[in-house]
């Protein structure tokens, strides 16, 4: 194991975060606060409690998930896309590093950033609404698993993308809509029966549901199913990453 290389990549990626602190940390916190103002105060005052929880408290896990997914993807995809774009990827490819070590470095840093961000958003939410975390261990578990999974997914997007537009297209056109439609801001029980069924094809439902369960024990699907689906998506991303390195897809000439 080339520990020094993993550390070097991790440190390099993290230093990029501190260099772009405004963009990396401050802007997501501001947008989350705006969600609270708009959804929590304006809409929340017209929605009564959902399954015994105030609307403001209800949307906290969904809001964290929204940032966690988009930021994990953005961090990891940019982290690997940028060296490809400027050409510094040559050094990564010519170094005595295994694919696994490259992934640990890039995905580890991306996931670390989004976990820190998730916790900051959680703390920010605490300023607006009363918070209760029923299962802290599971809460952290879902947070970490989701961050890692979507950082892997972002890594794949970053490898696949060969221009900046492709880098944005999946997060904007697929992930964000799925997150909004995945029960971040509502319980899927509030939907008509047909849409409840359709919604179950949205993987984000399982992430949000499990995460929300760890806060307030409210869940759209059983927590075991949520956990299983998260692991399944993690496994799919891992397989895709292994394939990328085995074939040199979009990395090697």
């Amino acid at each position: 194991m080339n520990i020094h290389a993993i550390k070097a990549i991790y440190k390099f990626e993290m230093s990029r975060t501190w260099r772009t602190l405004l963009q990396s940390i401050v802007s997501p916190v501001i947008s989350t606060s705006l969600y609270f103002v708009v959804f929590g105060a304006a809409i929340g005052s017209r929605i009564t409690e959902i399954e015994g929880v105030s609307y403001g408290t209800f949307i906290v896990p969904g809001l964290i998930m929204l940032s966690l997914l988009t930021q994990s993807i953005a961090n990891a995809s940019f982290g690997i896309y940028f060296p490809k774009f400027v050409g510094t990827i040559y050094e990564i490819l010519s170094a005595p590093i295994s694919p696994l070590e490259i992934v640990i470095g890039y995905v580890g840093a991306a996931a670390t950033k989004s976990i820190i961000l998730g916790l900051i958003i959680l703390a920010t939410a605490g300023l607006f609404v009363p918070l209760k975390i029923a299962h802290p261990f599971w809460m952290i578990g879902f947070l970490v698993l989701t961050a890692v999974t979507f950082s892997l997914f972002g890594f794949i997007i970053g490898v696949w993308a060969d221009n900046f537009e492709k880098l944005q297209v999946i997060p904007l056109l697929i992930v964000t809509p799925l997150t909004f439609l995945g029960g971040s801001f509502y319980s899927i029980n509030m939907l008509p029966p047909v849409w409840q069924t359709i919604t179950l094809f949205n993987p984000v439902v399982y992430l949000v549901s499990g995460f929300r369960w760890s806060f307030s024990e409210i869940a759209d699907v059983p927590v075991g199913v949520s956990f299983g689906m998260t692991l399944l998506f993690l496994a799919l991303c891992l397989i895709a990453v292994l394939w990328i390195f085995k074939t040199g897809y979009r990395l090697k000439k």
Binding site: H4, A5, A8, V86, G87, T88, E91, P96
Partner: peptide, 26 residues
């Protein structure tokens, strides 16, 4: 390896980028 094109991390310092390479090579 010193490649033909000047591929550099523009915003890194000289010290950081050279140290990074050393770490990368274990």
């Amino acid at each position: 390896l010193v490649p033909q094109e000047l591929h550099t991390d523009a915003f890194e310092t000289v010290w950081a980028t050279v140290s990074f390479s050393r770490g990368l090579f274990g």
